[in-house]
Amino acid sequence: MIDLKPEHKKNLIDKIKRVNDKHIIDEIYRLLDIDFNDTVYVTNDRQKKAISQAQEQIKSGQILSDKEANEEIDKWLNK
């Protein structure tokens, strides 16, 4: 377990109080997993195409296990 110091919470709260950007506040809510059901994710055409391609790959069985994916990531990082 990570040692949580009281000043860390206080510093975080202080930073959040200074945030005026709606997108940052939305992201904080998402990260904290607070009930935030009205979130709308906006995607551009490139992202929509990538999502569609990924869905097709899943349907056709073109997937990797966690172990295989981690091995590929290790190869990419060690190039």
Rank of each mutant, 00 (worst) to 15 (best):
N78T: 08
I34N: 00
E71N: 14
K79G: 05
Q55P: 00
V40K: 15
E68Y: 06
T39H: 05
I16V: 12
D35G: 01
K48C: 02
I51Q: 06
D14G: 11
V42N: 09
R30H: 10
S52T: 08
L64E: 09
L32I: 02
K79S: 07
D35N: 01
D33P: 01
L64A: 03
Y29R: 05
N70K: 15
E72G: 00
F36W: 01
D21E: 11
I34L: 02
D33S: 04
V40Q: 15
D74R: 10
R30A: 09
Q55W: 04
D3Q: 15
I13P: 02
N78M: 02
I2T: 11
N44M: 13
I16K: 01
D3Y: 15
E71G: 03
D26R: 00
I16D: 08
N37S: 15
M1G: 14
Y29M: 07
I16N: 05
N11Y: 12
I63C: 05
M1C: 09
N11R: 10
E27D: 14
K59F: 06
R18I: 05
K22C: 08
N70E: 06
K15H: 14
Q62R: 07
K15G: 06
E72F: 09
I58V: 13
L4A: 10
I73N: 01
D26L: 00
L32T: 01
E27Y: 03
K5G: 04
Q57R: 13
N11D: 12
K17F: 13
Q55N: 05
M1P: 10
N20F: 07
D66E: 11
I28T: 03
G61S: 10
W76F: 11
L12C: 11
I25C: 06
L64C: 03
Q62D: 14
K49N: 14
D35P: 03
D74V: 02
P6L: 10
R30I: 03
A54H: 04
H8M: 13
H23W: 00
I34T: 01
I73W: 06
D66N: 14
D66W: 12
R46H: 08
Q55F: 04
Q62P: 00
I2M: 13
Y29N: 14
K17S: 09
D14P: 03
E7Y: 12
N70A: 08
V40E: 12
V19Y: 00
I24P: 02
E56T: 14
N11T: 14
I73D: 00
A50T: 05
D38I: 04
N11G: 12
I16G: 04
D66V: 06
E68M: 09
R46M: 10
K48H: 05
S60F: 11
D45S: 07
D14S: 10
L77D: 10
L77C: 04
K5N: 13
I58S: 04
L4P: 04
L4Q: 15
E71I: 06
D38T: 15
E27N: 07
S65V: 01
V42W: 05
D14I: 15
L4E: 12
A50R: 02
V42L: 13
R18M: 08
T43K: 09
Q62Y: 11
T39A: 13
Q53F: 13
Y41Q: 05
E72A: 03
S60R: 10
K59E: 09
P6W: 10
I73K: 05
K22H: 07
D38Q: 13
N78S: 09
S52G: 07
H23A: 11
D26V: 02
K48L: 02
E27F: 04
I63D: 02
I34G: 00
